[in-house]
């Protein structure tokens, strides 16, 4: 397989995953605003923080109004990670490797891109936003399904899954980081909305239902963090993503260096003990994990794409 092709598949996966995560994030945030009384609403600034685009946002907007934030995240051309830009870059990546992808997947990606563009204004209005985001998410899931069902599970597919899982692990750490910012490990007095906020962390990752089934524990600092870092069955848990990525690396030639990094990272994740972390420690841990994910990306990139 051509290095250039592997690289484009990898980015195709990262961009579509990023688009889907962005859509989920907007959806859940919209709901969360409705669930909480005005006084404790987190507002829209954390969402921008999650996507890492705060500086960029502030150079174009004043204040974090819902309209501005949602516009920035869905369709603002200045935002390279806007939902529509992600799909555009995914499409560009796919365009240069059309010969390699199953034809239906190209059609599906085109449809997703068209849908997101043509109905973008439905995403801005609260009343139509939910339907718009659901359709976009479904459409991207459709792409994932077409690829799983029609693309040979060969080296190319391995790069697809590596890109997807790396992006997903990264997004999960970001969501934990920002969302847990104002949550405390042991709230001395009962914080009435704490569980709603922890629920929103889970819901941002579509993990509420799975958490309930898996953990059978009250929602709170320890169990939620254990679940989101270390669970090996939930596909958006950091540990799950890194384990997937690691098993894909095992299929690839010349993967020793990246494999070593992934193994070490996995070991670190399994050692995480949320009950001994304070918010400051959690921050540092997440910074460290993101750095490790970056190093892993570097190793894959240098080992396969630009040697």
């Amino acid at each position: 397989m051509l290095s250039r092709v592997a690289q484009n598949i990898y980015w195709l996966a990262r961009y579509t995953e990023r688009a889907e995560n962005t859509a989920r994030l907007i959806g859940v945030s919209t709901h969360l605003q409705l669930d909480l009384p005005r006084a404790v609403r987190p507002g829209w600034s954390p969402i921008i923080a999650i996507t890492g685009g705060d500086e960029l946002y502030r150079s174009h907007y004043q204040g974090y109004s819902e309209v501005d934030v949602v516009r920035f995240l869905i369709l603002d051309d200045h935002n390279p990670s806007s939902l529509i830009n992600c799909l555009k870059w995914a499409r560009e990546s796919a365009r240069t490797i059309r010969d390699f992808l199953p034809r239906e997947s190209w059609e599906q990606l085109n449809e997703s891109h068209q849908l997101a563009c043509e109905e973008q204004y439905r995403g801005l209005a609260q009343r139509t936003r939910y339907a718009y985001l659901s359709r976009v998410i479904q459409s991207i899931q459709g792409l994932t399904g077409v690829l799983a069902g029609t693309m040979s599970h060969d080296a190319g597919y391995a790069f697809l899954r590596i890109g997807r899982n790396l992006e997903r692990a990264d997004m999960t750490t970001r969501i934990i980081d920002v969302r847990s910012d104002d949550l405390l490990p042991e709230s001395s007095e009962l914080h009435p909305y704490e569980s709603i906020q922890w629920m929103s962390v889970l819901k941002s990752l579509s993990g509420y239902q799975m958490y309930r089934r898996q953990m059978q524990q009250a929602i709170g600092w320890g169990p939620v963090l254990n679940f989101l870092f270390k669970d090996r069955q939930f596909p958006r848990a950091v540990g799950f993503c890194v384990a997937e990525l690691r098993s894909e690396l095992e299929q690839l030639p010349r993967s020793e260096e990246a494999l070593e990094l992934a193994t070490a990272l996995l070991e670190e994740i399994s050692q995480i003990d949320p009950d001994h972390l304070d918010p400051e420690g959690l921050h540092r841990l997440i910074d460290h994990l993101q750095l490790q994910l970056g190093t892993l990306h570097q190793a894959i990139s240098e080992g396969y794409f630009s040697y």
């Binding site: 397989m1 051509l2 290095s3 250039r4 092709v5 490797i97 059309r98 390699f100 080296a155 010349r254």
Partner: peptide, 24 residues
Amino acid sequence: AELVEGGDLFVDRDDCVYMRTIHG
């Protein structure tokens, strides 16, 4: 067949053409 761009190919000292792949 592989769809290649100029940058994917190179001619080595043996005057044969090679393409850059994930296997080398």
